[in-house]
Design a protein around this nucleic acid. Structure first.
Length: 785
RNA sequence: GCUGGAGUGGUGGAAUGGUAUACACGUGCGACUCAAAAUCGCAUGGCGCAAGCCUUGAGGGUUCAAGUCCCUCCUCCAGCACCA
């Protein structure tokens, strides 16, 4: 009789052995075909992992183990995304230097991951806060600057009074609060570094079509995020001679434009000669006071003020129309100015009704009316014709804005530029990288809009690299997203101090073949794709896209159906599960819970099922004999076939269930030692400790994880006898068991010979037979009259 | 509102157009035990004593055959949203 599986001792034993033997180290010079399997690397928080975190890591672990056993050279690394506000806020609160806190958290995370027996090549570990790493993050920034894709802006930006830093639009919740701390975000005019991501918007959009192995919903989310609208820019001359350019997707409705609206922030507002300057000024001020919540609430009543003393001239018919400012027009979209067509736009209609402005219908049933020479034209034709007539320009605009790239905080990559009194912005010479974060005594935010770095005068004051005169270092740092926008490349060549990545190695290992993750995926993927395309343009990488295949994972909720959170007290720590039930049980359970992409609640009961399975496999040796029934051989080969294709497709839940079916059957019979060892290999990627132990117990002195993965014998994977359903007049009435290649006559005979089927055939003639071998027999009978 | 996805037992879920409910949990009964846990065996969609009938969100359609394909509708989830 077998012993109960002592998971604690066995896990420890093999994890140590694997480490000692460098079992999972990627061989650089290997001639095998490569596969690069990557997790979205974690942000090492102080709270450690809960059982939801490892789900994706288990999947990539299984996938990469499978690929290694199947003859590939596998690159499967792990690292840490450790810059950013949470680490800094945690450090401030607990009076610890962020670096120290991060080191501690990483050690804790690494320990937790180690307990699950993952096959990472730890010799490639990277950390975004390591100067040897962020040297290259800074290098990319300098390249962007060199190519004109990084620029300084003084536009008012989002300021979070809680975090005391500027934020990108994307850092806000939909209600306009800070996603980190929940504070109501204000607008503040500030000097900011901005990256011209909009230059890449079209390419990012178009290349989505090449990503055939990405889930559709992620691609759709990217399209929404980029939000391209096709339309035209049209110039409206004002009576004072100024010109306002509007963006519209409906140039065909130009005859219906009965007024214009500028965003209150529009640059022209302060410059126009107006009769009601005070009123206008007051409205602009009132808009600034409003939070983003009030500003973007579509429910509220429209407000605005007419700019008195000027009119605009509708370029298509020469009519003079009034000009307003109103906060329903957004400064950061299109040109910050619109032509208002109350008849064909709900928001314009609402505004027009309030201010009693005329409404002119110009399109009826997709055909133009009230539009002079364009009457009778289709909308599609008219769009082109009218733009041409008024000298407009066909163009696109995007929901996506340029990326606000500076933060007034300590714990980020210093932006590597120097401000010289004489030369202006001067990039730090490449050979002086990295610009290291200096030691500071107070890394709390200053709240003045300056980073804490500004107080360190001996770091800030430097000679200008260009003229040798007085210069000051840039004290803003990069946002957390910077380091994670290119890390997947560094794993390929983590220690290179001469280049971001060696071109030969890049050609060998890039791109990432399978990328797995969930949270924040849309935004991270936008940024990473943007940088990757830039790196492609400057010749650093050889592919236009970084991630060939993307697998999106569903989260694990707490048993109560809520998110796992300290706040609810419903967090389950994987360490506890590993200790009580074992790492292999946890791994099998998380894969068995449901489809990989589904969000499912943790179930302690469900865990028991996985545990029982692990124990039964441990006891399977008792059923090994000299022979095995043929159906066991067949079942094994069917199982091999199923498990292989399921792993390939990330259908781990059905792979596990197929193996359960095999074990259930094998327990009721006997199986040969050969089949036993094949089955253990089949399970090895899922339960690496158990199978390694059983492999050793079976007298092998190699590691099972370097063995060849079983291949199904196609002849043995199909049944020679099949049980198939029989329908009579399309209704299922029973089944027959016949040879898989039986002909129709045999099948019909078998059905007629079956008493329970024959019963249904009485009183009628078989008028039609539908026979799909191995699938179905359907007999149509007509009533005998 | 727009876009994408999903609705199957008490629960998680399975099913190239071919016997719906695999696998697992839970539950019930039984075995083992002084007893319990663990383990093992049997049963387990609904109605019905039974033969049988019904059943994949609702309703239509295509087909020999529909959870699967098509149409209409309902509900839920996700992303976007005063985006011109």
């Amino acid at each position: 009789m077998h012993k109960k599986f002592d998971h604690e001792a066995i896990e420890k034993k093999w994890q140590e052995k694997w480490r000692q033997n460098d079992l999972y180290k990627t061989e650089e010079g290997s001639s095998k075909e490569k596969v690069y399997v990557l997790d979205m690397f974690p942000y090492p928080s102080g709270e450690g992992l809960h059982v939801g975190h490892p789900k994706g890591y288990i999947a990539t672990d299984i996938y990469s183990r499978f690929k290694r056993m199947d003859g590939y050279e596998v690159l499967h690394p792990m690292g840490w995304d450790a810059f950013g506000l949470p680490a800094e806020n945690f450090a401030i609160k607990n009076k610890i230097h962020p670096r120290v806190a991060v080191e501690k958290n990483i050690a804790n995370f690494k320990q937790q991951l180690a307990h699950l027996g993952f096959n990472y090549d730890w010799s490639r570990e990277i950390n975004t806060t390591d100067p040897e790493y962020y040297k290259w993050t800074q290098w990319i920034f300098l390249k962007l600057l060199e190519k004109g894709l990084a620029y300084e802006s003084h536009e008012p930006i989002n300021w979070c009074p809680g975090c005391q830093t500027g934020l990108a639009n994307e850092d806000l919740e939909s209600d306009g609060t800070c996603e980190r701390c929940g504070s109501v975000v204000e607008k503040r005019p500030m000097r900011q570094w901005v990256l011209k991501i909009t230059d890449y918007a079209d390419r990012m959009l178009e290349d989505l079509d090449t990503l055939t192995e990405w889930p559709e919903h992620i691609k759709e989310a990217q399209r929404n995020w980029i939000g391209r609208s096709e339309g035209a820019e049209i110039d409206f001359r004002l009576t004072n001679g100024d010109v306002i350019t509007v963006f519209t997707t409906r140039p065909d409705t130009l005859f219906g434009a009965t007024y214009m609206v500028l965003a209150p922030e529009h640059e022209l507002v302060g410059k126009l000669p107006l009769d009601n300057t005070d009123e206008v000024y007051a409205y602009v001020q009132a808009t600034k006071q409003k939070s983003e919540i009030d500003r973007t609430n579509a429910e509220k009543e429209k407000t605005g003020v007419e700019l008195k003393g000027i009119k605009a001239i509708n370029p298509v018919n020469g009519e003079e129309i009034p000009v307003f400012i109103a906060d329903y027009v957004l400064a950061h979209y299109g040109t910050g100015a619109i032509m208002a067509v109350p008849a064909h736009d709900e928001r314009d209609r609402e505004f027009a009704q309030k201010f009693q402005l005329p409404e002119v219908t110009v399109v009826d049933e997709d055909v133009l009316v009230n539009s002079g020479e364009f009457n009778g034209m289709s909308v599609v034709e008219a769009k082109k014709a009218i733009v041409e007539k008024v000298g407009g320009r066909i163009t696109s605009t995007y929901r996506l804005n340029d990326w606000v790239f500076s933060r007034q905080r300590y714990w980020g990559e210093p932006i590597p530029v120097i401000h010289c009194e004489k030369c202006g912005v001067v990039p730090v010479p490449y050979e002086q990288l990295p610009v290291q974060l200096p030691e500071v005594e107070h890394y709390e935010p200053t709240g003045t809009g300056e980073s804490p770095l500004a107080a360190i005068t001996d770091w800030v004051n430097v000679d200008c690299p260009k003229c040798g005169g007085k210069g000051k270092r840039e004290t803003n740092t990069m946002p957390q997203w910077a380091g994670s926008s290119w890390y997947y490349l560094r794993f390929i060549d983590p220690q290179n101090d001469q280049a971001l990545i060696d071109p030969d190695k890049e050609k060998k290992w890039a791109p990432v073949d399978v990328y797995v993750g969930g949270d924040h995926a849309v935004r991270h993927l936008i940024y990473a794709r943007f940088w990757h395309k830039f790196l492609f343009d400057i010749g650093v990488v050889h592919t236009a896209e970084p991630f060939m295949r993307l697998e999106f994972l569903g989260f694990i909720l707490a048993e109560d159906g809520r998110k796992m959170s300290k706040r609810w007290g419903n967090v389950i720590n994987p360490d506890d599960i590993v200790k009580q039930n074992g790492a292999d049980t946890l791994r099998v359970y998380e894969m068995f819970m449901g489809p990989f992409e589904n969000t499912v609640a943790w179930s302690t009961n469900g865990l028991v099922g996985a545990q029982r399975f692990v124990e039964r496999v441990n006891g399977l040796l008792d059923h090994v004999g000299d022979t095995e029934p043929q159906e066991i051989t067949r079942l094994l080969h069917k199982t091999i076939k199923k498990v292989r294709s399921d792993i390939e497709e990330f259908k781990f839940n059905t792979a596990v269930s197929a193996m359960m079916i095999f074990v259930n059957a094998a327990e009721k019979a006997t199986l040969t030692n050969e089949s036993y060892q094949n089955f253990i290999k089949l399970l090895a990627p899922f339960a690496p400790h158990l199978t390694e132990e059983l492999w050793a117990n079976a007298g092998n002195d190699t590691s099972i994880h370097l063995e060849t993965y079983p291949v199904a014998d196609e002849d043995l994977a199909v049944d020679d006898m099949v049980t198939m359903g029989v329908q009579i007049n399309g209704k299922s009435r029973g089944s027959i068991t016949i040879a898989a290649d039986a002909d129709e006559e045999t099948a019909v005979f078998a059905a007629k010979s079956d008493p329970s089927l024959a019963k249904h055939l009485e009183g009628g003639e078989v008028t039609k037979v539908i026979y799909v071998p191995g699938r179905i027999l359907n007999l149509m009978i007509g009533q005998r009259s």
